[in-house]
Protein backbone atom coordinates (compact mmCIF):
# COMPACT_ATOMS: atom_id res chain seq x y z
CA UNK A 1 0.00 0.00 0.00
CA UNK A 2 1.17 3.48 -0.77
CA UNK A 3 2.16 5.47 2.27
CA UNK A 4 0.73 8.91 2.82
CA UNK A 5 3.22 10.94 4.79
CA UNK A 6 3.78 14.64 5.19
CA UNK A 7 7.11 16.14 6.19
CA UNK A 8 7.18 18.04 9.46
CA UNK A 9 7.08 21.38 7.62
CA UNK A 10 4.10 20.34 5.50
CA UNK A 11 2.26 19.22 8.61
CA UNK A 12 3.03 22.44 10.49
CA UNK A 13 1.94 24.49 7.48
CA UNK A 14 -1.31 22.51 7.16
CA UNK A 15 -2.00 23.18 10.85
CA UNK A 16 -1.31 26.92 10.56
CA UNK A 17 -3.48 27.28 7.45
CA UNK A 18 -6.28 25.41 9.20
CA UNK A 19 -6.08 27.86 12.12
CA UNK A 20 -6.02 30.93 9.86
CA UNK A 21 -9.19 29.68 8.17
CA UNK A 22 -10.83 28.97 11.54
CA UNK A 23 -10.14 32.56 12.56
CA UNK A 24 -11.65 33.93 9.34
CA UNK A 25 -14.73 31.77 9.96
CA UNK A 26 -15.22 32.16 13.70
CA UNK A 27 -14.56 35.89 14.10
CA UNK A 28 -16.27 38.88 12.57
CA UNK A 29 -13.38 41.31 12.58
CA UNK A 30 -9.96 39.67 12.99
CA UNK A 31 -6.56 41.22 12.34
CA UNK A 32 -3.05 39.91 11.91
CA UNK A 33 -0.34 41.58 14.01
CA UNK A 34 2.55 42.24 11.69
CA UNK A 35 5.89 43.53 12.94
CA UNK A 36 7.98 42.86 9.86
CA UNK A 37 9.82 40.15 11.82
CA UNK A 38 10.30 36.67 10.40
CA UNK A 39 7.54 35.05 12.44
CA UNK A 40 4.83 37.46 11.38
CA UNK A 41 6.15 37.28 7.80
CA UNK A 42 5.60 33.54 7.58
CA UNK A 43 2.14 33.85 9.16
CA UNK A 44 1.25 36.45 6.52
CA UNK A 45 2.72 34.18 3.83
CA UNK A 46 0.53 31.30 5.00
CA UNK A 47 -2.49 33.61 5.20
CA UNK A 48 -2.04 34.23 1.48
CA UNK A 49 -1.92 30.47 0.92
CA UNK A 50 -4.97 29.84 3.09
CA UNK A 51 -7.27 32.10 1.07
CA UNK A 52 -5.72 31.89 -2.40
CA UNK A 53 -6.90 32.80 -5.03
CA UNK A 54 -8.84 35.19 -2.82
CA UNK A 55 -7.12 37.95 -0.88
CA UNK A 56 -6.30 37.81 2.82
CA UNK A 57 -9.68 38.63 4.40
CA UNK A 58 -8.29 40.68 7.29
CA UNK A 59 -5.93 43.66 7.71
CA UNK A 60 -2.36 43.56 8.97
CA UNK A 61 -1.73 45.66 12.09
CA UNK A 62 1.65 47.05 13.04
CA UNK A 63 2.10 48.34 16.57
CA UNK A 64 4.81 50.86 15.82
CA UNK A 65 7.03 51.93 18.71
CA UNK A 66 8.66 54.56 16.49
CA UNK A 67 11.98 52.98 17.45
CA UNK A 68 12.40 50.77 14.45
CA UNK A 69 15.29 49.61 12.37
CA UNK A 70 14.76 51.53 9.11
CA UNK A 71 15.26 48.30 7.15
CA UNK A 72 12.21 46.81 8.85
CA UNK A 73 9.87 49.64 7.91
CA UNK A 74 11.10 49.71 4.33
CA UNK A 75 10.52 45.97 4.13
CA UNK A 76 7.10 46.20 5.77
CA UNK A 77 5.76 48.72 3.27
CA UNK A 78 7.04 46.79 0.27
CA UNK A 79 5.73 43.47 1.59
CA UNK A 80 2.26 44.86 2.25
CA UNK A 81 2.12 46.43 -1.19
CA UNK A 82 3.23 43.21 -2.90
CA UNK A 83 0.52 41.09 -1.33
CA UNK A 84 -2.12 43.78 -1.70
CA UNK A 85 -3.03 43.74 1.97
CA UNK A 86 -4.53 46.49 4.08
CA UNK A 87 -2.11 47.86 6.73
CA UNK A 88 -3.21 49.59 9.93
CA UNK A 89 -0.57 51.27 12.09
CA UNK A 90 -1.01 51.75 15.82
CA UNK A 91 1.44 54.37 17.03
CA UNK A 92 3.10 54.22 20.44
CA UNK A 93 4.24 57.84 19.90
CA UNK A 94 0.60 58.84 19.61
CA UNK A 95 -0.27 56.96 22.83
CA UNK A 96 2.53 58.92 24.54
CA UNK A 97 1.39 62.23 23.05
CA UNK A 98 -2.15 61.55 24.22
CA UNK A 99 -0.87 60.83 27.72
CA UNK A 100 -2.06 57.22 27.70
CA UNK A 101 1.45 55.86 27.99
CA UNK A 102 4.42 57.24 29.86
CA UNK A 103 7.85 57.09 28.32
CA UNK A 104 10.47 55.25 30.34
CA UNK A 105 13.58 57.20 31.28
CA UNK A 106 17.23 56.31 31.74
CA UNK A 107 19.77 54.18 29.97
CA UNK A 108 17.58 51.11 29.61
CA UNK A 109 14.48 53.05 28.56
CA UNK A 110 12.39 51.06 26.11
CA UNK A 111 9.00 51.43 24.53
CA UNK A 112 8.54 47.69 24.48
CA UNK A 113 6.16 47.56 27.42
CA UNK A 114 4.23 50.60 26.12
CA UNK A 115 3.19 48.57 23.10
CA UNK A 116 0.56 46.90 25.26
CA UNK A 117 -1.30 50.21 25.68
CA UNK A 118 -1.22 50.97 21.97
CA UNK A 119 -2.16 47.43 21.03
CA UNK A 120 -5.21 47.40 23.30
CA UNK A 121 -6.21 50.87 22.05
CA UNK A 122 -5.89 49.80 18.42
CA UNK A 123 -7.95 46.68 19.09
CA UNK A 124 -10.63 48.81 20.71
CA UNK A 125 -10.60 51.57 18.10
CA UNK A 126 -11.04 49.16 15.19
CA UNK A 127 -13.26 46.80 17.16
CA UNK A 128 -11.07 43.79 16.39
CA UNK A 129 -12.43 40.65 18.02
CA UNK A 130 -9.31 38.62 17.31
CA UNK A 131 -5.66 39.55 16.96
CA UNK A 132 -3.39 36.91 15.46
CA UNK A 133 0.30 36.90 16.16
CA UNK A 134 3.46 35.01 15.30
CA UNK A 135 4.36 34.01 18.88
CA UNK A 136 5.74 30.51 19.32
CA UNK A 137 5.65 28.26 22.37
CA UNK A 138 9.34 27.45 22.17
CA UNK A 139 10.32 31.10 22.63
CA UNK A 140 9.71 31.49 26.31
CA UNK A 141 8.41 29.44 29.24
CA UNK A 142 5.22 31.46 29.76
CA UNK A 143 4.45 30.99 26.09
CA UNK A 144 4.91 27.20 26.39
CA UNK A 145 1.50 27.10 28.08
CA UNK A 146 -0.27 29.42 25.70
CA UNK A 147 -3.25 28.14 23.72
CA UNK A 148 -3.73 28.46 19.98
CA UNK A 149 -6.94 30.37 20.77
CA UNK A 150 -6.17 32.49 23.82
CA UNK A 151 -9.09 34.17 25.51
CA UNK A 152 -8.76 37.77 26.79
CA UNK A 153 -11.24 39.48 29.07
CA UNK A 154 -12.69 42.91 28.35
CA UNK A 155 -9.51 44.49 29.76
CA UNK A 156 -7.39 42.47 27.36
CA UNK A 157 -5.87 40.49 30.21
CA UNK A 158 -4.61 36.92 30.10
CA UNK A 159 -5.40 34.65 33.03
CA UNK A 160 -3.02 31.69 32.88
CA UNK A 161 -4.97 29.77 35.51
CA UNK A 162 -8.24 30.04 33.66
CA UNK A 163 -7.52 29.00 30.11
CA UNK A 164 -9.90 26.95 28.05
CA UNK A 165 -8.79 23.38 27.46
CA UNK A 166 -7.93 22.80 23.80
CA UNK A 167 -8.60 19.35 22.42
CA UNK A 168 -7.89 17.78 19.04
CA UNK A 169 -8.17 20.44 16.36
CA UNK A 170 -11.42 21.90 17.61
CA UNK A 171 -11.07 25.55 18.59
CA UNK A 172 -13.58 27.42 20.70
CA UNK A 173 -13.65 31.11 19.77
CA UNK A 174 -16.97 31.89 21.49
CA UNK A 175 -16.92 35.05 23.56
CA UNK A 176 -18.99 37.74 25.20
CA UNK A 177 -19.27 41.33 24.05
CA UNK A 178 -16.07 43.28 24.61
CA UNK A 179 -13.86 40.25 25.00
CA UNK A 180 -11.40 39.25 22.35
CA UNK A 181 -9.00 36.50 21.38
CA UNK A 182 -5.34 36.26 20.59
CA UNK A 183 -4.60 33.46 18.15
CA UNK A 184 -1.17 31.98 17.45
CA UNK A 185 -1.11 29.92 14.25
CA UNK A 186 2.58 28.97 14.55
CA UNK A 187 2.50 27.94 18.22
CA UNK A 188 4.11 24.61 17.40
CA UNK A 189 6.97 25.96 15.30
CA UNK A 190 10.54 26.36 16.50
CA UNK A 191 13.08 28.93 15.35
CA UNK A 192 14.62 26.20 13.17
CA UNK A 193 11.27 25.34 11.58
CA UNK A 194 10.75 29.00 10.69
CA UNK A 195 14.13 29.26 8.95
CA UNK A 196 13.71 25.96 7.13
CA UNK A 197 10.32 27.15 5.92
CA UNK A 198 11.71 30.51 4.77
CA UNK A 199 14.38 28.65 2.80
CA UNK A 200 11.98 26.11 1.35
CA UNK A 201 9.36 28.67 0.34
CA UNK A 202 11.96 31.23 -0.79
CA UNK A 203 10.34 33.92 1.36
CA UNK A 204 11.91 37.37 1.35
CA UNK A 205 12.95 38.75 4.76
CA UNK A 206 14.37 42.09 6.01
CA UNK A 207 18.05 42.40 5.25
CA UNK A 208 19.09 42.86 8.89
CA UNK A 209 18.50 39.13 9.54
CA UNK A 210 21.52 38.50 7.32
CA UNK A 211 25.08 39.28 8.36
CA UNK A 212 26.18 42.85 7.60
CA UNK A 213 28.61 45.50 8.86
CA UNK A 214 27.13 47.73 11.54
CA UNK A 215 28.03 50.27 14.22
CA UNK A 216 27.40 48.61 17.56
CA UNK A 217 28.24 48.77 21.25
CA UNK A 218 28.05 46.21 24.04
CA UNK A 219 25.69 46.58 27.01
CA UNK A 220 25.26 43.90 29.69
CA UNK A 221 26.80 41.35 27.35
CA UNK A 222 24.35 42.13 24.55
CA UNK A 223 25.50 43.66 21.25
CA UNK A 224 23.27 46.67 20.53
CA UNK A 225 23.00 48.72 17.37
CA UNK A 226 23.80 52.40 17.80
CA UNK A 227 20.76 54.53 17.08
CA UNK A 228 19.11 57.83 17.99
CA UNK A 229 16.82 56.22 20.54
CA UNK A 230 19.51 54.84 22.84
CA UNK A 231 21.67 56.85 25.21
CA UNK A 232 25.14 55.31 25.33
CA UNK A 233 27.26 55.51 28.45
CA UNK A 234 30.79 56.84 28.14
CA UNK A 235 32.14 53.34 28.68
CA UNK A 236 30.07 51.95 25.86
CA UNK A 237 32.35 52.41 22.89
CA UNK A 238 31.00 52.22 19.38
CA UNK A 239 32.72 49.65 17.19
CA UNK A 240 32.06 48.28 13.75
CA UNK A 241 31.21 44.61 13.62
CA UNK A 242 29.88 41.94 11.27
CA UNK A 243 26.49 41.14 12.87
CA UNK A 244 22.98 39.95 12.22
CA UNK A 245 19.73 40.00 14.22
CA UNK A 246 18.08 36.77 15.38
CA UNK A 247 14.87 38.56 16.29
CA UNK A 248 13.57 41.95 15.26
CA UNK A 249 11.81 43.95 17.90
CA UNK A 250 12.04 47.47 19.15
CA UNK A 251 15.56 48.78 18.41
CA UNK A 252 16.08 49.71 22.06
CA UNK A 253 15.79 46.17 23.36
CA UNK A 254 16.86 43.92 20.50
CA UNK A 255 20.45 42.80 20.43
CA UNK A 256 22.50 41.55 17.51
CA UNK A 257 24.82 38.56 17.30
CA UNK A 258 28.24 38.42 15.70
CA UNK A 259 27.79 36.38 12.58
CA UNK A 260 29.03 35.67 9.09
CA UNK A 261 25.74 34.08 8.03
CA UNK A 262 24.84 36.05 4.93
CA UNK A 263 22.52 33.44 3.37
CA UNK A 264 19.49 31.55 4.74
CA UNK A 265 21.44 28.28 4.44
CA UNK A 266 24.18 29.69 6.65
CA UNK A 267 21.62 30.96 9.15
CA UNK A 268 20.20 27.45 9.42
CA UNK A 269 23.66 26.07 10.12
CA UNK A 270 24.18 28.80 12.70
CA UNK A 271 20.85 28.14 14.41
CA UNK A 272 21.60 24.40 14.51
CA UNK A 273 24.88 25.07 16.30
CA UNK A 274 23.53 27.87 18.55
CA UNK A 275 23.94 27.44 22.27
CA UNK A 276 21.59 30.24 23.34
CA UNK A 277 17.90 30.84 22.65
CA UNK A 278 16.95 33.66 20.32
CA UNK A 279 15.34 35.57 23.18
CA UNK A 280 18.75 35.65 24.83
CA UNK A 281 19.26 38.79 22.76
CA UNK A 282 16.14 40.43 24.14
CA UNK A 283 16.72 42.64 27.15
CA UNK A 284 12.93 42.95 27.68
CA UNK A 285 12.89 39.31 28.88
CA UNK A 286 15.81 39.77 31.23
CA UNK A 287 14.04 42.11 33.61
CA UNK A 288 12.86 39.20 35.78
CA UNK A 289 12.31 35.46 35.72
CA UNK A 290 8.62 35.99 35.01
CA UNK A 291 8.93 39.12 32.84
CA UNK A 292 7.03 37.61 29.93
CA UNK A 293 4.35 36.05 32.13
CA UNK A 294 3.68 39.42 33.78
CA UNK A 295 3.51 41.33 30.51
CA UNK A 296 1.22 38.72 28.96
CA UNK A 297 -1.21 38.95 31.87
CA UNK A 298 -1.57 42.66 31.16
CA UNK A 299 -2.31 42.15 27.50
CA UNK A 300 1.08 41.93 25.78
CA UNK A 301 1.21 39.57 22.81
Amino acid sequence: MQSYNLTHLQELEAEAIYILREVASQFENPALLFSGGKDSIIVAHMARKAFWPGKIPFPLVHVDTGHNFPETIEFRDRFVENIGANLIIGSVQQSIDEGKAIEEKGYNASRNALQTVTLLDTIEEHRFDCAMGGARRDEEKARAKERFFSHRDDFGQWDPKNQRPELWNIFNGKKHMGEHFRVFPISNWTEMDVWQYILHEKIEIPSIYLAHERDVFVRDGVVMSTCDFIEQRDTEQTTRMQVRFRTIGDATCTGAVESNADTIEKIIEEVAAARTTERGTRSDDKRSEAAMEDRKKQGYF
Partner: peptide, 12 residues
Amino acid sequence: MESKSYLDMELL
Protein backbone atom coordinates in the same frame (compact mmCIF):
# COMPACT_ATOMS: atom_id res chain seq x y z
CA MET B 1 22.01 19.49 10.58
CA GLU B 2 22.51 18.93 6.85
CA SER B 3 20.95 21.81 5.01
CA LYS B 4 18.55 19.63 2.99
CA SER B 5 17.85 16.78 5.41
CA TYR B 6 14.91 18.64 6.87
CA LEU B 7 12.93 17.86 3.73
CA ASP B 8 12.61 14.23 4.89
CA MET B 9 11.84 14.90 8.53
CA GLU B 10 8.55 13.72 9.98
CA LEU B 11 6.61 15.08 12.94
CA LEU B 12 5.81 12.93 15.97
